[in-house]
Amino acid sequence: MTGHYLSRRGLLFGAVGAAAAGLLAACGGGGEDSGSQGGTASPGAGGGGFPTSVAHQFGTTTLAAAPKTVVSLGWADADALLALGVVPTGILDWLQAWPVGVGPWAQDKLNGAKPQVLKGPEINFDAVAALRPDLVTFTKSDNVKATWDQLEKLAPTLSGPKGTQPYGTTLKDQTVMIAEILGRKADGEKLVADNDKALADAKAANPTFAGKSVCVAAAFGGQYGAYTRGDGRVQFMEALGFTNSPKIENLKPQSFYAEVSKERVALLDADLTVMFAIGAGAELRKDTVLNSIPAAKAGRLLIIDDADLVNAFSTNSVLSTPYTLEKFVPMVQDALK
């Protein structure tokens, strides 16, 4: 494989190969993108009453009035805010993929605004403070309390729900919690219901997906990593009717993925095997170890190297779901013919 396999963080983002290695190098600075201009938070019409309070893993966040300046730091928080008609003043760009901080599925929701884009995933607290936020959303992260404590000194900061593993905040919790702190819980629940309906419609239109096993994976550190039921990518596949590979779940991993060495590559075999490969699709297609599994030999190995599709899949938001369904479902249909 070109360059080297990636770290655990690369696996988190579903990124493989040289393109992702560049992404990881860019993540180290954690500063501001000087090419971005500050936007203005604009809560959408129909907001609810204040004050609002939302309990989360580190306490309770309370707002006395509708926020005017919102900074989005959690992975995919910006999508939830934009879906609610709120344009963040600042966005932490976890994926370092887009100059405007969000993917193509969400960019029209900016309505021409140019939020300040902060390089991620590390947080530059000085850059956040300079935006003078009156709300910080941080619902999907590594769940480090010390980070939340520091952000809370700057502004009311909404974290993820109790009992959630790092980066494990679900689409539903992320959307509804953000909507609730904005006094618009019902709007958030409607967004989730619409998202669920889109997935249910896709499932109903593809009955052959039901009950088939799936393994969703990437490559890192000279080995592979298969995502588990705590990960949004797997939850997306389950919503389409698939069952995450019992071979992976039986490993009982303590994270959002299970490590799979090349010697145990057979664990990646399933009725459908999906591999993420930003910038390294050709190399994975030549990976003789990976291509030894029955799924590969039968044409049921999907290597996804379209960066926007991988990022949409990994983002798993109410805005990215339609994009992922449109691009990804036909590929699955072809693979399972």
Rank of each mutant, 00 (worst) to 15 (best):
T2W: 05
S7N: 02
L12I: 10
G28I: 12
G31E: 13
D33Y: 13
G47C: 11
G48M: 07
T52R: 06
S53H: 06
S53P: 01
G59A: 07
T61Q: 06
L63F: 08
A64G: 10
K68T: 02
V71I: 01
V71F: 00
L81M: 00
L84Q: 06
T89N: 04
G103L: 00
A106K: 03
A113L: 05
P115D: 01
Q116V: 11
Q116W: 13
Q116K: 15
D126Y: 14
A127N: 11
A129Q: 14
A129E: 06
A130D: 13
R132A: 15
D134G: 08
F138M: 04
T139N: 02
K140T: 14
N143K: 12
L151S: 03
E152S: 12
P156W: 01
K162E: 15
K162R: 12
K162Q: 14
T164A: 14
L171E: 06
A186S: 14
D196S: 05
D201K: 05
D201R: 02
A205Y: 03
N206C: 04
P207E: 02
G211T: 01
S213E: 11
G221L: 08
G221F: 03
G222A: 01
A226Q: 05
Y227F: 15
Q235V: 13
F236P: 03
E238A: 11
N244P: 13
S245C: 14
K247F: 14
P253A: 15
P253L: 06
S255L: 14
Y257F: 15
Y257N: 08
V260Q: 12
K262G: 15
V265A: 14
D269N: 15
A270F: 09
M275E: 13
A280N: 12
L284T: 06
K286W: 03
K286G: 12
L290W: 00
A296C: 07
A296E: 05
D308Q: 02
D308A: 02
L309W: 03
V310H: 01
N311F: 12
N316P: 05
S320L: 01
V329Y: 11
V329R: 04
A335R: 12
